[in-house]
């Protein structure tokens, strides 16, 4: 497990660093120029901040079950170890990226700078299932690409669905009178999506062949 985690971390580390820099830059810009950022392109990037971790995980997970699985198996890793190592890595990354989001949500306020307003703290717990769902759907799509390219496309659509959940969620939390129980419904759908995608990944990896 240790080798898989270290192997996968080497794939994710550069992008995690880029995310950190992105978050730092956006928070600094917002704190320094709160009025001037709202209607600019940078402002758009700033306000989509909570979606960025999911996008990053989504892009990186397309290749995990093709390229990286092949390399790991060809070096003597077992399929079972790879599957659970990857799942653990996904969970840790999602937690880490959510923690980073939280950090940049609160840091300006703690430093006496204008507070970040891309989302309210109440929305933070929802980031976890939605981000994980996007990442799992991307993993499943990537795993299916080896054997069933047509079906893998369906999972890419599910990734987008999870991203839409995230975007909706950012509005829902502060408008319960408008959206009712939608937040919980979306959370439940995300959890089901995670379970289904994990099952798909497990089935694909179980009989994976190095090409």
């Amino acid at each position: 497990m240790n080798a898989v985690m270290r192997f996968l971390w080497r794939q994710y580390a550069p992008a995690t660093a880029v995310f950190f820099l992105y978050a730092l830059l956006m928070t600094l810009l917002h704190s320094l120029f709160p009025a001037g950022l709202a209607d600019t392109t940078l402002g758009s990037y700033y306000y989509m901040f909570p979606i960025v971790p999911a996008l990053f995980l989504l892009v990186f997970n397309f290749g995990v079950h093709s390229t990286f699985l092949d390399i790991a198996l060809s070096m003597g890793c077992t399929r079972r170890t790879f599957l659970w190592g990857h799942q653990l890595m996904l969970l840790l990354l999602t937690l880490g990226l959510t923690a980073l989001t939280a950090l940049f949500l609160f840091v300006p306020g703690l430093l006496g700078l204008p507070e970040a307003d891309f989302m309210t703290p109440r929305g933070l717990p929802y980031l976890l299932p939605f981000t994980l769902a996007a990442a799992e759907a991307a993993s499943a799509g990537g795993a299916l690409r080896r054997t069933r390219p047509g079906l893998s496309l369906a999972f890419y659509v599910l990734c987008l669905l999870a991203l839409i959940f995230l975007a909706v969620q950012m509005q829902v939390v502060d408008e319960p009178w408008l959206w009712g129980d939608l937040a919980w419904i979306l959370t439940l759908v995300s959890l089901v999506l995670i379970a289904v995608c994990l099952g798909v990944c497990a089935c694909c990896i179980r009989r994976a062949v190095v090409r």
Partner: peptide
């Protein structure tokens, strides 16, 4: 085994060091 010039979805843009790192971790 022989390294493939292409991977699923495009050319194999991984570096030689990438494979050596993986070998050092798994073997």
């Amino acid at each position: 085994r022989e390294l493939s010039e292409t991977l699923v979805g495009g050319r194999n843009s991984l570096k030689v060091a990438h494979y050596l790192n993986a070998a050092s971790l798994f073997l």
